[in-house]
Nucleic acid binder design. Structure first.
Length: 470
RNA sequence: GGCGGGGUAGCCAAGUGGUAAGGCAGAGGUCUGCAAAACCUCCAUUCGUCGGUUCGAUUCCGUCCCCCGCCUCCA
């Protein structure tokens, strides 16, 4: 089976074939966060999605170079820096650190490269220079440099690759007063923003005077610098399709020289947004959550990751607190099965059994159908549980099952953390065994309540008691 | 207004021109001193509406209703 993905460029599912003639190396760029606040779970759905893509490519044997940028200069950041009295670096550094911690909580693998916009001012300026030299960018009376869509189109280039655009029907001016800029056309976008007093100390020198980069240009400059002028995959949230990604294409294909059939990015993948309790997240509705909010409610990263991975990435997903409870229950069931298999395998090793892996890969090959992949996992759990209950699993078979699980969990990334039982808890459990033997049920129930109060659940199995974290 | 994505059991969510994965919740059972937990079994004659094509449609086409996203710096 071949891996197939939905490419926004063609609006269809296509077979994934890397640009690398050897078919091995894959370059993947993801639009990272703007570090001006703690990221919310909507942001993280996208990052969990990109993590799934990266992990599955690696599972399939590709050598992935994963780049995720940090946008550390932008309007909101500049405003907040001005209010906070901190330097740009202090301010963005704090949120960048928090973001990376959050990614780790969600078991998202760190990208191989993590460029910051402020560290690529040189390449950004170089790219703008090329655009100006080619005549598709111009400096306006306000000192800023803009990309001219009309001139770009005039060169035979296509603006509107990711979506159908109809400028006549667009509602211009809803968000940005069109007279705020001195652009030749409202459709044009800023490459370099001239310094204004409100920018404070945040500015760089450029051939067009002091200022700072526009938003879209950083991604074009960083991605092509780090992955080459053409690379395989570019991912992000669906809202970035327009204008951000469309503008990235325009800038890159406008500035760099591409041969016949060559283009900036081969596959564009976009993740849909999530709703929270059926509504778009908003602070006024009280359904706006950062990852940290959910952790404070007592949920953990794997539960949140599991929930985010329960729906297909191109479907809008309804994230609910109820769903998180469901995620916990589902993971408990999986953990239970793996625990039993692990006990039975007792350190034996074996080749991974193939059926689970086959079904799992078939599901993910189909445009990353992770829901179907989970279906395969849980059917496997039921089969294993049944066999375990019948006593028909050999230690070698258990080891083969565990090995298969470990292989697919390299993609899913939701392995349970080993929990060690403290000595005093273990001692209480043993005391309860003695009490039960002596038919002192009052005492044994008392111990059970005590353990429960300490956050431990005791299970009486045919092989004796088992203590678990509640 | 333009463009796009959806409506599948109480909830979440896959999927298919041939009769509906999976998870949660719920019900029954096994186990247990009683429980809990765990495990097993069951749980959509039906896929928003009304038509059409077809031997057969939830799946294709058309209509209507509803929800959601983007439309210039929001993942």
């Amino acid at each position: 089976m071949e891996l197939k993905v939905f490419n926004t460029l063609s609006r269809s599912v296509e077979e994934f074939t890397p640009l690398d003639p050897a078919g091995r190396k894959v370059g993947m760029y993801c639009c990272g966060p703007t570090v001006h606040d703690y990221a919310h779970i909507g942001n993280f759905r996208t990052f969990v999605f990109t993590d799934l893509v990266r992990r599955y490519l690696e599972y399939r044997g590709y050598e992935v170079t994963h780049v995720m940028n940090i946008t550390d200069v932008e309007d909101k950041i500049i405003r907040k820096v001005g209010e906070s009295g901190e330097t740009l670096k202090e301010f963005t550094g704090r949120y960048e650190k928090a973001f990376l911690e959050d990614l780790d909580v969600l078991a998202c693998l760190p990208s191989h490269k993590r460029p910051r916009a402020t560290e690529f001012i040189g390449p950004i300026i170089a790219m703008i220079r090329k655009l100006v030299a080619k005549g598709v960018a111009y400096q306006a009376a306000d000192g800023s440099v803009y990309f001219s869509i009309e001139k770009y189109r005039g060169c035979g280039c296509c603006y509107g690759q990711l979506l159908k655009l109809n400028f006549d029907e667009m509602r211009v001016g809803d968000r940005v007063a069109s007279d705020e800029y001195e652009k030749e056309s409202v459709a044009d976008f800023a490459l370099w923003k001239a310094r204004v007093p409100a920018d404070g100390d945040v500015f760089w020198k450029s051939p067009w005077g002091e200022g700072r980069p526009g938003w879209h240009i950083e991604c074009s400059a960083m991605s092509t610098q780090l992955l080459g002028s053409s690379f395989d995959l570019h991912l992000g949230g669906e809202d970035l399709i327009f204008p951000h990604h469309e503008d990235e294409i325009a800038q890159s294909e406008g500035a760099l020289d591409y041969g016949d059939g060559e283009r900036f990015v081969k596959y564009w993948l976009h993740g849909s947004h999530l709703l929270v309790e059926g509504k778009k997240m908003s602070k006024s509705l009280g359904n706006f959550f950062t990852l940290r909010d959910l952790l404070e409610k007592g949920f953990n990263g794997r539960e949140i990751r599991y929930l985010m991975l329960s729906a297909h990435y191109r479907e809008q997903f309804n994230f609910t607190i109820d769903g998180l409870h469901g995620a916990r229950a589902a993971l408990d069931r999986l953990d239970e099965c793996l625990h039993k298999l692990g006990e039975l395998a007792a350190g034996e090793t074996a080749e991974a059994e193939s059926e689970l892996r086959t079904r799992f890969a078939a599901a993910l090959d189909d445009d990353l159908n992770v829901s179907a992949a989970w279906g395969a996992v849980f059917e496997w759990v039921r089969e294993k549980n049944k066999a375990l209950a019948e006593g028909s699993v050999t230690p070698a078979a258990a080891a083969a099952a565990i090995a298969a699980w470990q292989r697919i969990n390299a993609v899913l990334g939701i392995a349970a953390k080993e929990v060690s039982v403290p000595a005093e808890i273990q001692a209480l459990a043993e005391e309860r065994v003695a009490a039960r033997k002596a038919k002192d049920f009052a005492r044994s129930d008392e111990i059970r309540d005590q353990l429960a109060a300490d956050g431990w659940v005791i299970e009486d199995t045919p092989k004796g008691p088992r203590v678990k974290r509640a």
